[in-house]
Design a protein around this nucleic acid. Structure first.
Lengths: 342, 342
DNA sequence: TATTAGCACTCGAGCTGGTTGAGTGCTAAC
DNA sequence: GTTAGCACTCAACCAGCTCGAGTGCTAATA
């Protein structure tokens, strides 16, 4: 990206801000009226023409004003955006709206999504900690029918996963208890990732094992924990997005709803943000979110179990407002998870 | 409802069917053209005027055709609708699309919703068995932190619920195991409803109990099972609904999405249908579904754990097509649940 | 040389008026 | 009781019009 001189930057910033506020194309006169650049509309037009040349602006048709392109927004976010900090009062308010004592993980996540959506007026997303990175706490087996077992797995953070597996031989409940006791002793404190490694190694070593119990335990737990569980995504406030003028036409609405329905695109993005530090902003169609942006941040506790949360809004959303909300919420959630696991 | 003579019935039926097919107001000429009543348009008009008088039809404006009112649809469904049975071939196809072996409850429900939606081209709903009516199989406690316990409850059908409770005293994991063993022995085979009764009675009788273990077990399980868990609802295919012409305008879309988002209305209706026998049809705004209908049926296994599933579509949906699909799917799901619990 | 005033031009939005066609209600004849 | 005929209504569509906001270019200006 070629460098912009100060004047161009100012004008670009003005256009982006006005467009964020109004959702309408911004014209040269409107800018000189609303901002104090000591420039005539004609000069502004010249600058605008340059910015259009560079791909930062575009006009929907000849006699309309300009709107920022994705690239324009990207530039704005990268170099012009100033994120304001939350005031202590706002922080306090935010902290107060989060009351999670006695709630189970799923409910907490759902509630966080709702609050994010309520604060931002856009859609709130929360992705629960990825299975493989959670820390093993406890495993239980329940015999459902002949050869069919329900496995219940609990992580350090109190996240519960369950799964049905089939065993080739029938095992009664007493034996299952012994097996789970054994596994709980052996595997506590490891991440699922580590657990898998350990199981694989042991199974190779002890193919011809005498200890029947241990053998069964190994094969059962291997079956239970081997494959990846889909990430769980909570979405709240989709209908708020529909209020935004850019989604007022039926086709755009449909598109948006489909995006939220499939969840895949959103999960992929949150996954990406999970491994990064701090707040991340994803813009527009290069991430399959035509017309939208995602502001996200990961959360984690001391033990490292991680997830991600964020807000999806129109590309034209008020970043300076939403970024600190997402940031602070992620910190709050991290703290809550820490407390849960203490 | 006053009785209609045969001619009026025929014409009403023709109008409803044509409207279902086209989503457009139906005029008198169109009817004489498409159906063979040996009547002139003028005669049909007279009948239509009568039907409008009775509140079964209405016209959006003076020179448009007529469309059925909610009352009209209701009449059609109650007395004119002939539900065709599925052919053996279709049944077989349906059976083949359901492959649930080795899936856990939640995933099965989600999949059923998707298939319902795919078959009907409308939105598919599945509500998992109501908590209070499930049959107790097993309970486990996991100590999360000082005084905070995670309770995991498994029903006969393999449905897993979990909840965080706080105990006034700290209890170690060994003791928790004993407690859960005790409870599993005592409560197996009862419905949650029955369990609650039993616990209440025992707690009253044994306020001054010497057996500390039993006392703790009672109070813990009481805390764990006392309050009602929200019903869980799976929705699939909302975006298919948006394809329907009646939801093409932005406001109607927004409304529809909000209905699906809040879930409450849908849960209430499925709840109602849960206690009824066979297929139920809910129509329009007297059940807070403006412009929509819900076709639902409950499913159950021999042990009585029940839930409900259904399809939400525009009021103008093809009932003769969708009713048998919902019906047969409910039967299939019931059979699957039976097999799970065997 | 950078800035600006002036001007012709473009184009969407919104209004008007006219036409068309599907549909109605009423009445009088069959 | 049925129907043909007729006047009437109304949404949808189209064409033509004005308006206003905005543009790009050019020539004058500081």
């Amino acid at each position: 990206m070629a460098e912009l001189n100060e004047r161009s930057q100012n004008i670009l910033e003005a256009i982006v801000k006005d467009y964020i506020a109004s959702a309408e194309p911004v014209g040269s006169r409107a800018i000189t009226r609303r901002h104090d650049f000591n420039l005539s509309p004609a000069s502004v037009r010249n600058v605008m023409a340059d910015l259009e040349e560079m791909g930062l602006l575009c006009s929907p048709h000849t006699s309309a004003g300009r709107i920022p392109t994705e690239k324009g927004f990207q530039y704005y976010i990268d170099t012009l955006l100033q994120v304001r900090d939350l005031s202590d009062k706002e922080k306090k308010q935010l902290r107060n709206s989060y009351r999670f004592s006695g709630m189970k993980m799923e409910d907490i996540m759902q509630e966080v999504g709702r609050i994010l959506s309520g604060l931002s007026k856009y859609a709130g997303l929360v992705m629960v900690p990825k299975f493989a990175s959670t820390v093993f706490r406890q495993i239980e087996f329940v015999r459902l029918s002949h050869g069919r077992l329900l496995v219940i797995y609990v992580s350090e953070t109190g996240l519960v996963q369950n799964k049905v597996i089939s065993a080739d031989v029938d095992i009664d409940q007493r034996q299952l208890e012994k097996i789970s006791n054994y596994l709980n002793r052996e595997l506590g404190g490891l991440t699922i990732h580590q657990v898998r490694e350990k199981l694989k190694k042991e199974m190779q070593e002890e193919m011809s094992l005498y200890d029947q119990l241990r053998k069964k335990a190994l094969s059962l737990s291997f079956a239970a924990l081997q494959d990846e569980v889909e990430d769980q995504l909570f979405v709240a406030g989709t209908s708020l997005m529909l209020e935004q003028p850019e989604f007022s036409s039926p086709e755009q609405m449909r598109r948006l709803i489909q995006t939220f329905e499939s969840k895949k695109i959103l999960i992929d993005l949150l996954d990406r943000s999970q491994s990064a530090q701090g707040v991340q902003i994803f813009i527009g169609s290069d991430v399959d979110l035509k017309g939208c942006s995602l502001i996200s941040a990961n959360f984690s506790n001391r033990k490292g179990a991680i997830g991600a949360l964020g807000v999806v809004g129109p590309m034209r959303m008020d970043y300076s407002q939403v970024v600190p909300i997402v940031d602070f919420t992620a910190q709050l959630v991290s703290r809550v998870l820490d407390r849960e696991a203490e």
